[in-house]
Amino acid sequence: MNYKFDFVKARKWFFLFSLATILLGVVSLLVQGLNLGIDFVSGSRLEINLHQAVDKAKADAKLEELGYASPNTRLAGNDKELLIFRTDKALSKEKVIQIRDAFQKVYGKSVAVNEQTVDPIIGRELARNAIYSVLIASIGIIAYITLRFEYRFAFAAIIAILYDALFTISLFSIFQWEVDLVFIAAVLTIVGYSTNDTIVIFDRIRENVKKENPKTFEALSSVVNTSVQQTLVRSINTVLTVVFAALALLIFGGESIKYFSIALLIGLISGAYSSICIASQIWIDWKWRSLKRADQNLQSAE
């Protein structure tokens, strides 16, 4: 590589960009919140597969006929063959069978229904567990990195991870994509996986710091830049192979894991960005400040 990008010099822009995206996300979260799936709120969710393109107006009319005033429906699937119908109140099994039979009369015997019913207690528990999970996983990761590296690396890594999680959640809020139980799994995978990249870079920074023993900011920033550049291909390639997998799941995997795949894809890309542009840059600012302080202490002691 002949052209060498100065990542450290551009770090103010990275911070600005990152803060702006997070701010946008927080505003969206405050204004419109998340489109919570059935797992987190009570009620029933029916996924009616009609095996043919659905006319939403016609399907809604059918449901109104059965006594569901202005039904909450949306179409999904590659050929818009899925009708997703949600109710705030749990539907009894008799009601579900009634709906299935009504659709079978119009669209033929192949109509199949997946049904999910959740009580609000469970939804609240799931949401609580999700938050606990992310916190505990973060603490575990901080502890491990502190043990293996130093606390500055650990906190820089965690800020990057939380950025990835928040960025993914923000996009789900902005586009109002449905957040369900597997979304939590996706976010936790991102939390675990995006540290991989960060650790590979930190590992190299530590090695180069030992080798060069930088004393000035220029020297330190050159170490960070070299380390990032040395690991850049690796960072991109490792993420790329997982991105291939997530893309394949998104394109071919079907409706049930569509949003899961989207979440992973966003998180993976954000993870690569945050390792280079957030974690490493926070570390250098922090490290430099403590180097300077140590230096002053030394001088005042003399």
Partner: peptide
Amino acid sequence: DAHVTTIIASAVM
């Protein structure tokens, strides 16, 4: 090192 963090996250999950 890189894998331990994923192990931590999946164990919590």
